[in-house]
Design a protein around this nucleic acid. Structure first.
Length: 427
RNA sequence: GUGGGCGUAGCCUAGCGGUUAAGGCACCUGGUUGUGGCCCAGGAGAUCGAGGGUUCGAAUCCCUCCGUCCACCCCA
């Protein structure tokens, strides 16, 4: 900000790529969160919350130095004590850190965890892509069998089903492990050696740092070479191959359709074996709504014993975009049940008391604005969608009653204060 | 990070070089004494995204920045 702007009364705006979630979207957010929590619990997952910031090295080491996320998208800062911290750019590393820090190796394995958390990436915003977004994620740590891979995918797929999202395609691949991947990467290098002239600038860098990601390049010029490149699925070692085969048969048993996309790789380096993504039918760049994979080397990389893990992350904002696009039915947020209108200063205190009694009786109540006419208060009640208006004037004050008006049909009756909660609950 | 479109009150839009920036929705207040949704009347709300420049004069033209959207890229 320049000095002039500081002096002037420039209005503040939310930072670029960061959004307010307004009450008009409350129903979507509640639906998406409650459904997620319900599904996760139904699979035996327990909630974990981790800090939004962590030692920067946790992410730099975990996600991989060669990735875009780490190289140009992590929010890094130094705090007042001089520690290098980073805002979480993804959810898995935190959870793995917590698993190690709290000795979860000694819990029955796998440890099944889920979370909702804000995620930060310094990216150029556009629709469906934000600098702060929210992910639901799960991690199953401590069991390397393909059964858990199938379960993880089943959780995500069940979640989308429960939300009513349709038309999603599951893309699936195996990218091998520390045993077979190096051999494959070498064969990929051999293949590209001498062909680098026909490849984009990014891919030249990827060739050095992370050749696998060349397969994922969207540059038109790179396509033909990708088409003809050797496939990881053809060079999986026997263990990886069996793992992948078993996963596919488990998915078949669950009736979960998928497309084997041999060129699917993911943006984080810690993935091994299984990787997957869910894509909606709609076109558009920001289409992936959820994805994940296995990370059998990550815990060890973070200083633990060799421990397998698998998980997914799914963007709630993108889910909501798709729910809106599909016009999916969403449970509404209830309007306040009773609007307590008052006609004199003397009635104000009584109105506050009556509203409190209603709430204690589990009836949502809103008190009318001071100094507003009854007409204005009823208009307000109507605008809020209240079912009843409880009217309190001198008459009612004297008799210990309220006038209860049914806003739907305008019928009114006197109700003794003691009977109000019951009356407000009926109809 | 690259390229392009857009930016007028909370929202949608008119105005596109010339005096007090117009309308609709929403909001507030009234239409006599304690009654909503329709109608009518009135009111409040805009340094025309910000800063600079051109001009006698700019919301209207130019530049820079910010924001937003789209494509690329990246990914959830």
């Amino acid at each position: 900000m320049t000095e002039d702007e500081e002096k002037g009364q420039r209005r503040f705006q939310a930072p670029r790529g960061a959004n307010d979630v307004l009450p008009e979207d409350e129903a979507y957010w509640r639906f998406v969160r409650e459904t997620g929590e319900r599904i996760c619990h139904s699979f035996g997952y327990r909630r974990i919350d981790t800090p939004v910031f962590e030692d920067a090295r946790l992410f730099l080491r975990g996600a991989g130095e060669g990735t875009d996320i780490v190289e140009k998208e992590v929010y890094i800062f130094e705090d007042r004590g001089g520690d290098r911290l980073a805002l979480r750019p993804e959810g898995t590393a935190n959870v793995c850190r917590a698993y190690l820090e709290h000795g979860m190796q000694s819990l029955p394995q796998p440890v099944r965890l889920f979370y909702f958390s804000p995620v930060f990436r310094y990216d150029r915003p556009q629709a469906g892509r934000y600098r702060q977004h929210t992910q639901i994620g799960i991690e199953a740590i401590g069991d390397g069998s393909p059964l858990v891979d199938a379960e993880t995918i089943d959780v995500l797929s069940s979640y989308y089903d429960a939300l009513g999202l349709s038309g999603l395609t599951l893309h699936l691949n195996s990218i091998g492990d520390s045993n077979c991947r190096p051999t494959y990467v070498q064969s990929l290098r051999d293949y590209y050696e001498g062909k680098l002239g026909g490849v984009c600038g990014d891919c030249k860098v990827r060739f050095e740092k992370s050749p696998l990601r060349m397969l994922d390049c969207k540059e038109r010029g790179c396509r033909p070479l990708i088409e003809a490149a050797p496939l990881i699925s053809d060079s999986l070692c026997e263990d990886c191959d069996q793992h992948f085969t078993a996963l596919q048969s488990h998915l078949a048993a669950l009736d979960i359709d998928f497309v084997h996309n041999p060129r699917l790789v993911r943006g984080l380096d810690y993935y091994t074996r299984t990787v997957f993504e869910f894509m909606p039918k709609e076109e558009g760049a920001q289409s992936v709504i959820g994805g994940g994979g296995r990370y059998d080397g990550l815990i060890e990389l973070l200083g633990g014993r060799s421990t397998p893990g698998i998980g997914f992350g799914s963007g709630l904002e993108r889910i909501i975009i798709n729910l809106k696009r599909q016009n999916a039915p969403i449970p509404e947020i209830a309007a306040p049940r009773v609007y307590v209108a008052h006609l004199s200063e003397a009635a104000q205190g009584a109105a506050l008391g009556i509203a409190r009694e209603l709430r204690r009786g589990d009836v949502a109540a809103v008190v009318g604005g001071a100094g507003r006419s009854l007409k204005a208060q009823l208009r307000h009640a109507d605008g809020l969608g209240a079912r009843y208006a409880a009217i309190l004037g001198d008459k009612e004050l004297a008799s210990g009653e309220v006038t209860l008006r049914d806003m739907a049909n305008g019928e009114q009756r006197s109700v003794a204060n003691a009977d109000l909660v019951a009356a407000a609950k009926t109809g």
